[in-house]
Design a protein around this nucleic acid. Structure first.
Lengths: 194, 194, 194, 194
DNA sequence: AATGAATGAGGATTCATTCAT
DNA sequence: GATGAATGAATCCTCATTCAT
């Protein structure tokens, strides 16, 4: 039952299925067959649209990162002051969507993949660079150590995210966000110091 | 030419080889054959000693974690005050041994494996719990929010570690350590605050 | 935008594309998709016109053989004596068109296919029979051993052709032709002998 | 049932099976599975010993060519004069072993493969060069046109071989050999001529 | 007439694991 | 204790062919 203009629909379905399967099994040990099946098509078609397993994974990663980017933009929409914008960035990082188990799994496995695949590494770099410049831009009016604080903030965000991915009895999402904000506020309070 | 008492030597060789290979390729996509070859023996022997691939990986992970534990103990040896002990714990986390590329790779991949393998998850929990209780024990004399600060410290340590694993132009090891200490000091300075 | 009367045009395009692709890759490992693409149409249409891959190949082979037949007829046109006609036949065999790299490749692969496909074998037989009878017909006035000499001539033609297909530093086309003619002349000189 | 020192036995079995299968189906469209099955082992083992399909084919080709070389040496053993040695070379080319249907098939398919695979091409070159120098060496005492006659002889040998591979009602092996010798003799008779 | 969506069988290759020696 | 021979399942990928539109 071939239809016309299926390409975007199929690609979307495959990306969703990839994230779903990676999340389900918790690793990249997912076969193209499994993904295609979950997406409701044959494995051949998956190859037809993406060319290969790696590219399917990359597309899924790209999707996750662009989702995150959209999240950030949405949160930023309502913010006006630099500090509100920093809050918005942190809020986006701890938005519920990023903590769906399959999304956590996907992030984590993509982190690992980044060590091997140059494509994955590139994507991750872009994400990191964007986050960094976003933070620096909004920290600059508030502190003379914008770069320094941005690094720390990014690290603590990643750290909490990682712990959420791996541990159980942890502060919840809201608390983690509060802990990051606490860090930010401590750093900004330093401003007045020496 | 089978020898007697080879078991510990063989096991050690296999564990080292596992870490080496995992680090080299940057993922768990390492075959028993590769590991055995690097360890200078046949793949059959690797199975003989460990029973299977998963157990080889677990043994390697256990080794890394115990290395880290030893590191912490060594650093703690010279410390007397609680704050010195906190410093020692952080110092151990950023010790050069943990930043050998293959060790970083191994940690990261084991993190991911923890999502799949209950054995790996258990090990990671033990490490996290030990770090946590170490931190809490030494924070308690210094702050009323020991649990809180311990969580934050652990997160920021992990966060920096992760960033070292994935990015290039980053503050170096010493700087990262300083950034964690800065966090600790800020938190302890809060103590006096309301 | 389907057009009327496209059939012959499409078929021609597919046949040319087949010869082109077979020549390019140097084997029958050519996909219908590649052929169709080179012919500027979808793979579905290729099937529509020919029914299947084998038939596309057969059509291409038939084309090559008929090209060769036309070549022979053209050369024969100007010839009047039996010997001139023999010369014409040899000349056709070594005509530049047959030595285009893709044509050589195609011939060779079709030879191989003849072992498997009865259709291909049939075509090859027809070609061989026609060449043979052409030679015999013109040898008869010149020698009592027409059959014998025809076999030898055909063999030496094929032999040179094969060597052109596979080797590099060889006598060129013109020289090869001369060598065949030399053979013919030696044979005809024998006529007078005992 | 693993045994020791199986390697040469397995390799031999695989080479024989390869020639057998290629001969049976008349093309290189033979799967590693088929070959391995005919050789009485799993497909995995075939890869273990040869590394890949291409190398299996190359090994088979190398075997055929070395068989042919041995044939030539055997025939040459009893020959003393240059002419006898020429006879021996031709005899080897038309030896029954080379005309086993699967050997013919294998030769032909390897000819085609030579267009694609550099390894195959190299082997074929070596064979051709050796035949050529053998012929030239023995022609030199008998004619001033040794190179010339060697080329013609090689071509006519190949031509007859090719025709045997593809046609049915043909002079038989012995007759083909006689036809080649006839060519040689005619050429050598020229010697005296102008 | 023409497209390209879709399938699914088939094939090369890899690898953990077992086991005779 | 040690080897490496052997298996076979699993996986990615390709492609001829079909068919709705």
């Amino acid at each position: 039952m071939p239809k016309l203009g299926m390409e975007p629909i199929r690609r979307k379905a495959l990306i969703d299925a990839t994230i779903g399967e990676v999340g389900r099994v918790g690793s990249l040990d997912v076969t193209v067959g499994q993904i295609a099946k979950r997406a409701g098509m044959s494995s051949g078609l998956a190859h037809h649209y993406f060319g290969g397993k790696d590219q399917i994974f990359l597309a899924a990663m790209r999707h996750i990162l662009s989702q995150f980017g959209a999240q950030v933009r949405r949160e930023l929409a309502g913010a006006t002051t630099p500090f509100e914008r920093l809050q918005a960035i942190v809020a986006a990082s701890f938005h519920a969507d990023n903590f769906a188990p399959e999304v956590i799994s996907a992030w984590l496995t993509f982190y690992v993949q980044a060590q091997t695949s140059s494509g994955a590494r590139r994507l991750l770099r872009i994400y990191a660079a964007r986050l960094h410049s976003n933070l620096v831009y909004n920290l600059r009016p508030l502190t003379g150590r914008a770069e320094h604080v941005a690094h720390g903030t990014a690290a603590i965000i990643d750290g909490y995210y990682l712990r959420h991915a791996l541990q159980d009895n942890l502060p919840d999402r809201a608390q983690s966000k509060a802990l990051v904000m606490e860090y930010l506020e401590m750093q900004l309070a330093q401003k007045a110091a020496p």
